[in-house]
């Protein structure tokens, strides 16, 4: 029981950290053609995420692997039920990864234009689909003992789409703030302006999301049972407000930290509301996948706990160390001079 709860927490943390880290990569990707005015600026944008995007994406692989190892039934049903959505997600992630690597490999305008478009589309699709998927998980999937009764189209319901838009805006804001910090001069200024312009839209969508969650899902039940937990969504709102405050007072790094916290807390808000479900059923509560009816054996959970508690701290330490190595903002001149760059 304690192990299942531990793994539920870890499951939420893995998704939260993944969205926080890939969020700014996806955001930067979506902004690729919007903020990058010249080839040099576009290259700066790709190179700010160059050293870290791959390591950030591994959090997704780990979240998937952890679901497989700790909650195999949830893994099996979630992935087969959401087949077509996941397929589109896979295609987008594949294209995104090679776009970064391939774009700079040929000095040809058409070639670069093609990959520029690829970067933008393949960043928008995962942001939107992850939101749609989690929106639907929050609502519950139409599943019972006979199986799954939904389709790709049924995922695109209003609440699912709203969550999708929320994710897109969160990541756009996050990416714009990341670029404010990591680039210099004109590009950095334009990124900051865009972040400020996006913020009211994000606020409106986030507020709509919090209200419709009351009507569309049962996430608030846990909060009504334990009101102390309300501190998590309240902190999410506070950090969302803090983004704008820090930006206004000229602290882009703090604003970026606030948007990181916002993403983590939004995910936490949803995951706490789900407990003890991993995927609730919208038509038959008895068919909900919970941490109790879909988990691995205590023995496997114990082994996996030992692995996680040894290796995750090691991973986090060397990741922080690498982020520190690459902490300096990039200039266009620097990127053009560096032949190893993307």
């Amino acid at each position: 029981m304690a192990l299942q709860i531990t793994w539920f927490v870890l499951w939420g943390v893995l998704w939260g950290v993944y969205f926080m880290l890939d969020g700014f990569v996806l955001g930067t990707g979506m902004l690729h053609g919007i903020l990058g005015k010249s080839d040099g600026e576009k290259r700066v944008m790709i190179n700010t995420i160059g050293p870290v995007w791959d390591g950030n994406e591994v959090w997704l692989i780990t979240a998937g692997g952890a679901t497989f190892a700790a909650f195999p039934t949830t893994y099996a049903l979630m992935f087969s039920y959401l087949y077509t959505a996941l397929l589109l997600l896979l295609f987008a992630l594949i294209v995104r990864g090679v776009s970064f690597e391939f774009r700079g490999k040929l000095d040809n305008a058409t070639w670069k234009k093609g990959w520029d478009l690829a970067i933008q589309v393949s960043s928008l699709i995962p942001a939107l689909l992850f939101g749609v998927a989690f929106g639907n998980i929050f609502q519950g999937l139409p599943m019972d003992a006979a199986g799954y009764h939904g389709s790709l189209l049924s995922l695109l319901n209003p609440y699912g789409l709203l969550t999708g838009v929320l994710f897109v805006l969160l990541f756009l804001e996050h990416g714009a703030l990341y670029l404010t910090v990591k680039s210099t001069g004109d590009l950095s200024n334009r990124a900051k302006k865009l972040a400020d312009k996006l913020w009211p839209a994000l606020l409106v969508v986030a507020a709509t999301f919090l209200v419709s969650t009351w009507f569309a899902t049962q996430l608030y039940d846990n909060y009504l049972g334990e009101t102390l937990l309300l501190i998590v969504p309240l902190l999410a709102v506070a950090s969302l407000v803090a983004i704008r405050v820090f930006s206004a007072y000229g602290s882009p790094l703090k604003a970026f930290a606030a948007s990181s916290a916002t993403i983590l807390l939004v995910v936490a808000t949803g995951v706490i509301g789900l407990f003890p479900n991993l995927i609730p059923s919208s038509i038959d509560p008895a068919s909900s996948l919970t941490i109790f009816n879909s988990s691995s054996s205590p023995y496997t959970l114990k082994i996996m706990t030992v692995v996680a508690f040894i290796f995750v701290p090691i991973v986090i330490s060397y990741k922080i160390w690498v982020y520190r190595i690459f902490r300096a903002p990039l200039t266009v001149e620097e990127v053009i001079a560096d032949k190893g760059a993307y």
């Binding site: 195999p72 992935f79 496997t300 290796f311 995750v312």
Partner: peptide
């Protein structure tokens, strides 16, 4: 995945983490 996830999922998750 349902049938063998208890044992097969572990090396996959370890591969990612390690």
């Amino acid at each position: 995945s349902k049938y063998v996830g208890d044992i097969f999922g572990a090396p996959l998750a370890i591969e990612a983490t390690v």
